[in-house]
Amino acid sequence: MDIIDGTMPPGAPLVQEQIAAKYGVSRTPVRDALVQIAADGLATAVPGQGYVVNELTDHDVHNVYEVRQALEVLAATQACGLHTPRQLVRLKSLIDEYETVDHSDAEELFRLGTAFHSALVEPSPNEYLLKLLEGVWAHPVNRRISRTLDYTPEQQATVASDHRRILDALGRNDAGAMVQILAACFHIRGEA
C-alpha cells in the first residue's frame, strides 16, 4: 500500500530486512511480497541490493488505460439494453455521490469511479470478461495511477458530466453513443 499511495516514492529502496523490521514480520513473507510487487510492475530487483520502487511512466499509464478501454467498451456494449431500472438508479446515485466528494480525495474518487464502471458493465453476460475487468481495476498499477491523479474541481465535474452522458445513452439503449462517450473519456484524459 505504501507504494500505491505514494508514501514510498519512485527510486525508494525496498530492503527486505528493513521492511521485515518495520512491520514486525519474518523475512520470508517480505521476500514473497517483494517478488509479487516486482511481478506487478511496482518495483525492480537490483542484484545484491534488494528492490527499488519503479517510476510510474506515461507508457505505464497508456498501457493500463489501453487495456481498460478495450475491455470496458466491449463489456459496456454487451451490457447496453440489459440494465434494470434499479441498476440505472444505482448508476445515477454513484454519479451524484461522485460530485459531492472533495476533488482532492483521490482514493474516494477512485472508489466511486470504479464502482460506476463496474455497475456500467455488470449486466454483461460474459463472466470471463467481467473477471478480467475486475483484475484490471484492482491491479496495483491501476490503483497507483488513480491515487496519483490530481483533480481540479473542473476535471471532477467533467468526469461526472461524461458519466451522466453515458447514463443518458444507456437510458436510450444507444450503445453507439455510449461507446463513443466512453472511448472519448479515455482518449481525452487517459481515464474515464
Rank of each mutant, 00 (worst) to 15 (best):
residue 4 I to L: 03
residue 5 D to S: 08
residue 6 G to N: 03
residue 15 V to W: 04
residue 20 A to E: 03
residue 23 Y to A: 05
residue 25 V to D: 05
residue 25 V to K: 07
residue 26 S to L: 05
residue 26 S to I: 06
residue 27 R to G: 14
residue 29 P to D: 02
residue 33 A to F: 03
residue 39 A to M: 07
residue 40 D to N: 07
residue 42 L to G: 00
residue 48 G to W: 07
residue 48 G to F: 08
residue 48 G to L: 04
residue 51 Y to L: 05
residue 53 V to G: 00
residue 53 V to A: 00
residue 56 L to F: 01
residue 56 L to V: 02
residue 57 T to V: 02
residue 58 D to R: 12
residue 58 D to N: 09
residue 59 H to L: 13
residue 72 E to Q: 12
residue 74 L to C: 08
residue 75 A to C: 04
residue 77 T to C: 08
residue 78 Q to R: 11
residue 79 A to L: 03
residue 80 C to V: 09
residue 80 C to R: 06
residue 80 C to E: 10
residue 80 C to P: 04
residue 83 H to Y: 00
residue 86 R to A: 12
residue 88 L to Q: 08
residue 89 V to M: 03
residue 91 L to A: 01
residue 96 D to N: 15
residue 96 D to P: 08
residue 97 E to Q: 15
residue 98 Y to F: 15
residue 101 V to P: 02
residue 106 A to K: 08
residue 108 E to M: 15
residue 112 L to P: 03
residue 113 G to H: 04
residue 113 G to R: 09
residue 113 G to Q: 05
residue 113 G to K: 08
residue 116 F to M: 00
residue 120 L to W: 01
residue 125 P to R: 06
residue 125 P to L: 07
residue 128 Y to G: 07
residue 130 L to G: 06
residue 131 K to R: 14
residue 134 E to K: 11
residue 136 V to I: 14
residue 136 V to H: 04
residue 138 A to F: 01
residue 139 H to T: 05
residue 140 P to Q: 03
residue 140 P to R: 01
residue 141 V to F: 04
residue 142 N to T: 13
residue 143 R to V: 01
residue 144 R to M: 01
residue 145 I to C: 04
residue 146 S to R: 13
residue 147 R to Y: 09
residue 147 R to M: 14
residue 164 R to S: 10
residue 165 R to T: 14
residue 165 R to A: 15
residue 167 L to G: 01
residue 168 D to I: 08
residue 175 A to E: 07
residue 178 M to Q: 10
residue 180 Q to K: 15
residue 183 A to F: 01
residue 184 A to P: 02
residue 185 C to E: 13
residue 188 I to R: 14
